[in-house]
Design a protein around this nucleic acid. Structure first.
Length: 281
DNA sequence: ATGTCTGAGTTGCTCAGA
């Protein structure tokens, strides 16, 4: 079973690219972030025509997460316990919850598509929101792991954190900035402390997953590694291979992020299984 | 020059967000 994560930066702006890649790369399950639309606006037909079902969580033009899968998806969840909100309080005085998390189960594997808040600037309220969002997610994940120690789990998505100095092209540029601060890196490390590991890093030790559109960042290879697949021990044991699809940053109208892919040692139906031809004739 | 993108509203420009 081939699983991937990709911040697509608006699905409507590049549905052709995304579906073409899904088919070409032979991906079974794709976690998307920043679909930037609600369900009524999502280009379902293009996915269905390519053989993928879609489950999504989108509230407006901001954020939005989704799964496209050619295997059955069950147990959809759009929040985790303790997930904080952000913005203007509603009539009930509560901060609205954003569309940043979506969980589904595929082939007994629990998968989450996550769009971690950007943080904007260390002095911005969005930064405290980011840290709280991650802290609550880690707490919920720790509880889930305790209750389901044998079920493979992966938290996949745009984490908006560069855990290592080598995950940005020039640390000096990030002096005092978000994505590399000690509290953010501690929040990321908390997921490793509770038993998750970056299942891609051992196979793909270097390389970025994001390059800003501005200032010729991609031609200069001035990028950041901020998209990760964090797997539980049972998930990590299934991982056979991994890659970062750098070529998807090239060409016409790319996303500013590229797909991150893992191959799991789980059999999936092959095209021949749908074929009525006898094996021998 | 935050020098590029995206989507929405106050539309054929300005704003927010990244």
């Amino acid at each position: 079973m081939r699983v991937a994560t990709w911040n697509v930066n608006s699905i409507r702006a590049r549905v052709g690219r995304v579906v073409d890649w899904l088919v070409k790369a032979d991906v079974d399950v794709l976690a998307m972030q920043e679909i930037k639309c609600k369900e009524s606006q999502f280009p379902m037909d293009a996915f269905h025509d390519a053989g993928y079902e879609v489950v999504l969580h989108g509230l407006n033009q901001w954020n939005g997460v989704a799964f496209a899968s050619r295997l059955p998806m069950t147990e959809p969840a759009t929040t985790f316990t303790g997930m904080p909100g952000f913005g203007k309080p509603g009539d009930d005085g509560m901060l609205p919850l954003e569309a940043r998390a979506l969980g589904v189960t595929v082939n007994e594997v629990r998968l989450w598509s996550l769009y971690v808040p950007n943080g904007r600037a260390v002095e911005d309220p969005h930064y405290a929101y980011k840290l709280q969002w991650l802290d609550e997610l880690a707490k919920q994940t720790e509880q889930w792991l305790g209750e389901n120690p044998d079920q493979p789990l992966a938290l996949m998505g745009d984490w908006n954190i560069a855990p290592l100095d080598s995950d940005v092209w020039d640390l000096d540029v990030f002096e005092g900035a978000t994505h590399v601060s000690a509290p953010e890196r501690a929040a990321f490390a908390a997921f490793e402390r509770i038993g998750l590991t970056d299942v891609v890093r051992p196979i793909v030790p270097t390389g970025y997953t994001y390059w800003d559109y501005k200032q010729l960042r991609f031609p200069r290879n001035e990028g950041m590694r901020i998209d990760f697949i964090m797997g539980s021990q049972p998930f990590a044991e299934l991982v056979k291979d991994a890659r970062i699809e750098r070529n998807e940053r090239k060409g016409d109208a790319p996303s500013d992020h590229v797909p991150v892919v893992v191959d799991l040692d789980i059999a999936t139906p092959s095209p021949e299984d749908d074929d009525d031809r006898p094996m021998f004739w």
